[in-house]
Design a protein around this nucleic acid. Structure first.
Lengths: 143, 143
DNA sequence: CCCTGAAATTAGGTTCAACCTAATTTAGGT
DNA sequence: ACCTAAATTAGGTTGAACCTAATTTCAGGG
């Protein structure tokens, strides 16, 4: 039933997460302008994300992330930041390039890869930008 | 004008490449069955890939890869095999998992990442399956 | 040499994601 | 109570990736 997120929906989720850092609910209009899309499109997508269990929603009010939404964003952010850190620290990619590379793959990286990179890095708490890296599931810590 | 390949088109290209290892031209029917799709769909997609400059085509005969098609498949294969080798050798992922992980990311890996992994591995000629790894552009070899 | 059958292509259509513009609805402040 | 800005719904469009049902083409057997 949950039916997986599309890539585009994952984008929306990331943007919503960022907007939420400054307030505790965001409206369609804000999402629309952050995504460069009409308000109607944003509204529809928010509904879909809600139906997929990613958002908490008070119609006419605004949305925030549900438990599952938070997990999903954390997964993406973790993928991004671990990969970026690894690319920068181990693969000697410039920070700027590492970040851009991370953007390209963050939605597709298997957990096994990310956990392994995380382990080799010694389970860092922050990426080179000093943003915090969400923890992985327990198996990341297992030897 | 060339207009980038869709993910699905890249899949077709890989399949075509594999079919070509046994013969020197493949027909719609073969591609269709390898992709699990109707013959009409395969035929259409072959036409699109041809229009995008990826295939050589003699209508009613069959297709083979064009120069650009070969480059594209090589890029994907290189991404796959370098990543897989790196995951296996450095990230300690089982060979089977490494291969599966490579399948998930092979279309999205930036060249910089792959070249860096390739360098750290000492520019291996073959992946753990003993398949040959296509060479990268010259800059892979530069220190 | 034609004729037929298998393979290829074209015609015409569906579904779904992601957009849009133009209504329409609604909640909140004056 | 009213007005307006924000949110939603209605009704479309486009493009990717499929499909089934014609139709076309070529190559080999009679």
């Amino acid at each position: 039933m949950p039916s997986r997120l599309t890539d585009r929906e994952a984008e929306y989720l990331k943007v919503i997460f960022n907007l939420l850092s400054k307030k505790d609910a965001v409206g369609s209009l804000e999402v629309a302008s952050a995504m460069g899309v009409s308000c109607a499109t944003a509204s529809e997508t928010l509904k879909k994300l809600y139906e997929k269990g990613m958002l908490r929603r008070e119609p006419w009010r605004g949305v925030s992330l549900s438990e599952r939404g938070i997990m999903e964003v954390n997964r993406i952010l973790r993928n991004h930041r671990v990969f970026e850190t690894y690319a920068y620290e181990v693969l000697s990619i410039s920070l700027e390039d590492a970040c851009e590379c991370a953007n390209r793959v963050e939605l597709y990286l298997p957990e096994k890869i990310v956990d392994s990179m995380c382990r080799l890095l010694g389970h860092p708490k922050r990426c080179p930008h000093k943003n915090s890296i969400p923890e992985g599931s327990s198996c990341c810590l297992e030897k």
